[in-house]
Design a protein around this nucleic acid. Structure first.
Lengths: 108, 108
DNA sequence: CGAACTGTTCGTATATTTGCGAACAAATAA
DNA sequence: TTATTTGTTCGCAAATATACGAACAGTTCG
């Protein structure tokens, strides 16, 4: 008797969650921007993004909720940076996901 | 004078597009299912997913539009499989994205 | 104290996503 | 021809996501 998937696995849900965090160009831009700087304040991000500060804040919130970044209050500014542990988790998750599928020959 | 990002780069848009395609557990499940089978019909997918066939069809449509999979009509069935070229593109895109950021020491 | 600066939260408008049943289309089988 | 099988498309409802200005909160500066 074949195992039946009645619901999604936590693995699938986790990949989908990280993917959702990356699913908007502004958030990809934020992460790329954080990547090349030792340190980055909200204002730096707002400067280079073509959106209102309220919207920037919202995207940062999504990224924080995903765990990919973290913010630290350095009054009167807020400093953001990549969360290394979770970043590595996501990196490995996507790498495995794409490679597992690359192994097989699929159709044709 | 610092280069200013006035809009998103096509690179950022492309990552966001692929990420959006992966941003739902059902679509991750579909891709994982396609990964371990030589060949896969719509019915096989519908069987193992906890959603109505109309919804399965919709998710397949999203994945087709992203380029990650392709469908082939084998009357009266429809056979789906991973699109290898685009899959490799996405794999490389995410791998680079995650590794570029892993390089830097970021804050703390 | 009040003004200025930095960023978040609120309220709202609009667009997109997700999900389903029903209707539909195409091919096959009876 | 009619019924069945397979999957897509339609129409709709509900939930999320995106975006903005305005209001707000906390800190610093004058």
């Amino acid at each position: 008797m074949q195992m039946e998937i009645t619901d999604y696995t936590s693995h699938q849900i986790q990949i989908a969650m990280y993917a959702k965090a990356l699913a908007h160009p502004a958030r990809v831009a934020i992460l790329e921007f954080l990547a090349v700087r030792e340190c980055c304040f909200f204002g730096n991000l707002h400067e280079v993004l073509p959106i209102a500060k309220a919207t920037v804040s919202q995207h940062l919130s999504v990224l924080k909720d995903s765990g990919l970044i973290q913010g630290e209050i350095k009054p009167p500014q807020v400093k953001y940076c990549i969360n290394k542990e979770n970043w590595e988790t996501a990196r490995a998750l996507f790498a495995d996901f794409f490679n597992d599928i690359k192994k097989i020959d699929s159709c044709r």
